[in-house]
Design a binder for these strands. Structure first.
Lengths: 376, 376
DNA sequence: CTGAAAGCGCTTACAG
DNA sequence: CTGAAAGCGCTTACAG
């Protein structure tokens, strides 16, 4: 009855046990819900616990061999709507299941990614969701710096084939890290990343790219330009592959398609558009490899007095929430982002399969106002 | 030299100590960087540690009295651009300082909020940032259900005064929780929430509302309507207060201003606009209390064939990234969201002051294309 | 500067 | 079903 007056330290399980008149072991069983306690005793202990405001110490629990109730989530950038939606999906699940989520952003830096995984492992996190593109081998895009000063490259110069661009280099470290993580019993699911021997939710990047290209070709466009994200991302490569495949399938020469790389952001899109249009003023359509870049393209084009889609069409990728509200409303490829997060968490929660699971997402062409037949 | 072949359990500090030929205590000191070790020994231990891939067990550390290197972040909704920006700001800071962030979303449910804090406390988190509006006393908005079936209320019916709407009710529990958290040495900073005796970053809601209203009055608008978010949020109340004050200061009767409440989302905004315009078809301007609602309003109005701002002006609040790209580009009140996150983390990191610190943000009217003089 | 030892708050075999 | 005891991997007084 008498409350400890001075010590503000939270009650421990012993306090609960004492107050309930049972042993530590019994109290523990009652609180964790494990078998071996009579229902009455368990209920009594729990009642006492909640009365005295007992909250188990998760560190002690983890250390004593209990489950770690945290899942890790690594994204490139929380502020980006793509990752925002994914995070929403993941958090929705974790919270309904009583887990806490440790979130990290890497700003698309492979080294930061490794560091984050290690930090998460230090916290003995055994369930981890990594969202965001993997990286292609450094040096493949010789001399092209990510997001700054990226020169214009002919289409043929980028993505010389599917599946050759493994997450190597920093990728080698990453692969080793992942191996050791899973060997130690860790569960990892990635979103939008191949080349890692783990469960994966794979957005339909190549197919989406092809669908988008067919849409533009169908409208009659032949002089197209592409705003690519950082050339070291496999997502960029895959989406480009899809575009190229559909372009080639129409009997056209992909080498005639200029590709400009920039940051996967609004600003990156605007800057890349500037470079693209200066070198190729006669384009009738621009494809951005994600929606923020497309929004940047719209902004630059409109500011430069071009009519969209009257003079030039613009298309994006992802169907971020912003897509339908920009002017003109953006034609894009929809990916089920929040659901992808949910799926990834689901994979992480189930026991590992004998071989990595792959869940391919759907994609859907969403035609809005930003694309139309060329004016010609 | 010989590696343990079968046991995949990670190396412990004893392993490092053994390999380095020092005691556990010395190894610990070397790894934590605490004083009492010669620089050489420390360097040697660290070299050995990194060679054998030692990663300290954070749970053991925390349990043994070391610092918990996690900070908690509670937001209403990660997918919402407002919170996305705040999260970005917070994470940017935590990561540069070597902390990991535990993130939770509450979906604007006060009960969920309490549950999240408790979960965080179970993990012995002592640094916590809570972003998002507080709640006004339940029952103040009698019969008005949040986000669904919210009826049209006369302006005078909402927000009968500043400062009276404390975070009560669930607020009482919250206050108790917060007291016990800080009493136990926890550090908490809130963003956009008053009435809690903790450090706070306070967006200039009332002043922003007043600025926005003056802008519209200055354009000549007199028949205005308001799209309010959930009526139980203090943020909504404060922004309304600002609008009302400026309206009254112009010698006008606030009771003539219809206020419709809905979810703080695009969909909520569209639905609220529908109700508002049906009841008051002659409005010349609509103010939404956040940008997503404003975007919903634009969408509904444009779909209904209204010209914006030709027939009706629309303004928002926050200056979310989307604001400048919608059509027409949105006039709004800019809040420095990412910086607010950074500020909050900064507060949490410093020792508590004798009385709670308050940092007021600036606000800035950003005039874009969605507002213009009334057509009349 | 270095080490032996206690202790953080739990869980889980191991005995009844 | 219940309890006494060992142990999880660290940190930190406490002695040298």
């Amino acid at each position: 009855m008498a409350e400890r007056p001075s010590v503000p330290s939270p009650p421990r399980l012993v306090d609960v046990a004492r107050a309930a008149g049972v042993s530590l072991a019994t109290a523990s069983r009652a609180m964790t819900g494990s078998s071996g306690v009579s229902a009455e005793v368990a209920a009594h202990v729990q009642a006492v616990a909640s009365r005295i405001g007992y909250v188990p110490n998760s560190h002690a629990r983890a250390l004593a061999g209990g489950q770690v109730s945290m899942v890790g989530l690594i994204v490139h950038d929380v502020g980006d709507p793509y990752f925002g939606e994914i995070a929403r999906g993941v958090l929705h699940e974790t919270e309904s299941r009583g887990y806490l989520a440790l979130i990290s952003q890497t700003q698309r830096d492979p080294r930061a990614e490794l560091a984050r995984i290690r930090a998460l492992r230090a916290h003995r996190v055994t369930m981890l969701v990594m969202a965001g593109s993997g990286y292609v081998r450094a040096g493949r895009e010789a001399g092209t710096e990510v997001g700054a000063g990226a020169g214009i490259t002919a289409g043929a110069g980028t993505g010389t084939g599917t599946g050759t661009g493994a997450d190597t280099d920093a990728g080698a470290d990453m692969a080793a890290e992942v191996r050791s993580f899973t060997a130690a019993g860790g569960r990892l699911a990635v979103i939008g990343r191949h080349h890692l021997p783990v469960d994966a939710v794979l957005p339909d990047n190549a197919a989406g790219g092809a669908t988008l290209m067919r849409h533009l070709l169908g409208l009659g466009h032949r002089r197209l330009g592409v705003l690519g994200g950082p050339p070291n991302l496999t997502t960029v490569e895959d989406r480009l592959d899809g575009l190229r495949t559909a372009f080639g399938a129409a009997g056209l020469d992909w080498r005639s398609v200029p590709v400009v790389h920039g940051d996967f952001t609004r600003e990156g899109g605007a800057a890349a558009t500037a470079r693209l249009m200066r070198a190729h003023p006669d384009l009738t359509a621009v494809v951005a490899l994600n929606d923020p870049m497309a929004v940047g393209a719209l902004s630059w084009l409109l500011n430069s007095g071009r009519r969209v889609p009257g003079e030039i069409s613009v298309a994006g990728f992802d169907d971020a929430p912003v897509a339908r509200d920009v002017y003109p409303a953006l034609t894009t490829i929809r990916l089920p982002m929040a659901d992808m997060g949910k799926q990834a968490l689901d994979l992480v929660l189930r026991p590992p399969a004998s071989r990595p699971r792959r869940r391919r997402t759907t994609h859907e062409l969403v035609v809005r106002a930003s694309t139309a037949p060329p004016h010609t």
